[in-house]
Amino acid sequence: MQGPWVGTWRPHPRRGPILAEFNTPGPKYGLPGTTGHPGHDPTRQRAPAYSFGTTTYPSAATCSPGPQYFIDSSITKSGKHVPPTALVTARPKTKIVVTPGPSDYTTEPADKHVYHSARANSIFSRPKDIKCSQTPGPAAYSLPRILGPRTPSTPAAPCYSMRWKSQYQSCFQDMAKTPGPAAFNKVDLDVYKPKAPKFTMRIKTKAVGTGTAPGPAEYNPGKLSATKTRDPAFSFGIRHSAYEASVVPKSQID
């Protein structure tokens, strides 16, 4: 390749497209697919999707091993035939029990049953008196009463009981059951007399203009552009590159 030199290097034609010339991210981002449910292209129509189930295996109760398995001759229709056999196991461990010796026994109390001996009586303590055999003394009894009704040994005179004073047909009995003058409340005069006008006494209102008002120093005049002319003002922005790629959301990258 021949061409004029520009300083220390010679310019040459480009071999492919430059990414800075495109306003889009470029071919490195893939378009969303049009098949399947997740990640489907939202601009395309999506047909109904159906899931494929797994193959169900037959039940073990209805399956037989088939001719490829060898059946042992010991297997019968009632189960496996096992002849009686003797099992060879380890020697069982013996538990050592400590038994008493001759010196641990006492034979003296049994001599009276083997040899002739004199009669021996044991002395016990005096038994306690049984409560059911104790009889009451003279002071436990009391003489029956001779006054009042229901005496067992003497005739009783007629008795009369003192009752309270009856209210029947007395001056204190209210035969009509009507309330007295004190049972009624006082009737308001406005019910049966002309009602006079009534006025409500309210609180004293505050006079207008007696509060604290702000002074001239409390106000901020700010900019005077509202009352006077102002020169035009321009704001300086940021210079944007023509080759800057646009921001692509992460949701559209997949």
Results as ranks from 00 to 15, higher is better:
residue 83 P to A: 13
residue 87 L to M: 07
residue 164 W to A: 08
residue 179 P to T: 13
residue 129 D to F: 02
residue 158 P to V: 06
residue 156 A to L: 00
residue 92 P to G: 15
residue 72 D to H: 14
residue 92 P to E: 15
residue 150 R to V: 05
residue 182 A to G: 14
residue 124 F to H: 06
residue 84 P to A: 06
residue 126 R to N: 14
residue 134 Q to D: 03
residue 108 E to L: 10
residue 149 P to L: 05
residue 90 A to I: 11
residue 119 R to L: 10
residue 123 I to V: 13
residue 169 Q to D: 12
residue 130 I to Q: 09
residue 155 P to C: 01
residue 86 A to W: 00
residue 74 S to K: 08
residue 89 T to R: 07
residue 144 P to Q: 03
residue 129 D to N: 06
residue 174 D to N: 15
residue 192 Y to K: 11
residue 87 L to T: 09
residue 155 P to H: 07
residue 155 P to R: 06
residue 88 V to H: 08
residue 102 P to K: 03
residue 145 R to I: 03
residue 183 A to T: 15
residue 109 P to H: 08
residue 159 C to V: 04
residue 156 A to Y: 02
residue 142 S to H: 02
residue 175 M to K: 10
residue 103 S to M: 01
residue 179 P to V: 14
residue 76 T to P: 00
residue 97 V to F: 07
residue 96 I to G: 07
residue 118 A to E: 11
residue 170 S to Y: 00
residue 83 P to H: 02
residue 142 S to F: 01
residue 83 P to Q: 06
residue 103 S to H: 09
residue 171 C to S: 09
residue 88 V to Y: 09
residue 100 P to A: 13
residue 140 A to F: 00
residue 146 I to S: 03
residue 166 S to Q: 08
residue 127 P to Y: 02
residue 127 P to R: 02
residue 175 M to N: 11
residue 101 G to S: 08
residue 84 P to G: 06
residue 176 A to F: 00
residue 110 A to S: 08
residue 79 G to E: 12
residue 87 L to D: 09
residue 181 P to R: 01
residue 119 R to V: 12
residue 188 D to E: 13
residue 191 V to R: 04
residue 155 P to V: 07
residue 121 N to S: 15
residue 118 A to S: 12
residue 87 L to V: 09
residue 189 L to V: 10
residue 94 T to F: 11
residue 77 K to M: 11
residue 116 H to N: 12
residue 100 P to R: 05
residue 84 P to D: 10
residue 139 A to W: 01
residue 151 T to C: 07
residue 127 P to W: 00
residue 152 P to N: 04
residue 98 V to E: 12
residue 151 T to G: 05
residue 77 K to T: 15
residue 74 S to D: 10
residue 124 F to E: 11
residue 125 S to P: 10
residue 145 R to C: 06
residue 135 T to M: 00
residue 185 N to W: 06
residue 120 A to R: 05
residue 131 K to Y: 08
residue 111 D to I: 11
residue 173 Q to T: 13
residue 165 K to L: 04
residue 192 Y to T: 15
residue 75 I to L: 14
residue 147 L to A: 08
residue 120 A to E: 06
residue 137 G to F: 03
residue 122 S to D: 02
residue 106 T to N: 14
residue 81 H to L: 14
residue 88 V to E: 08
residue 121 N to A: 15
residue 82 V to P: 04
residue 100 P to Y: 02
residue 140 A to R: 00
residue 190 D to R: 04
residue 80 K to H: 07
residue 83 P to W: 00
residue 189 L to F: 04
residue 118 A to W: 02
residue 76 T to F: 05
residue 187 V to E: 11
residue 148 G to M: 00
residue 125 S to Q: 12
residue 150 R to M: 03
residue 101 G to E: 07
residue 139 A to N: 01
residue 156 A to P: 05
residue 130 I to L: 05
residue 157 A to Y: 01
residue 144 P to V: 03
residue 118 A to Q: 10
residue 108 E to S: 10
residue 162 M to W: 00
residue 187 V to C: 07
residue 108 E to H: 04
residue 170 S to P: 06
residue 183 A to C: 15
residue 168 Y to P: 05
residue 158 P to S: 08
residue 109 P to F: 05
residue 129 D to M: 05
residue 132 C to E: 11
residue 103 S to W: 01
residue 165 K to E: 00
residue 127 P to H: 03
residue 115 Y to I: 04
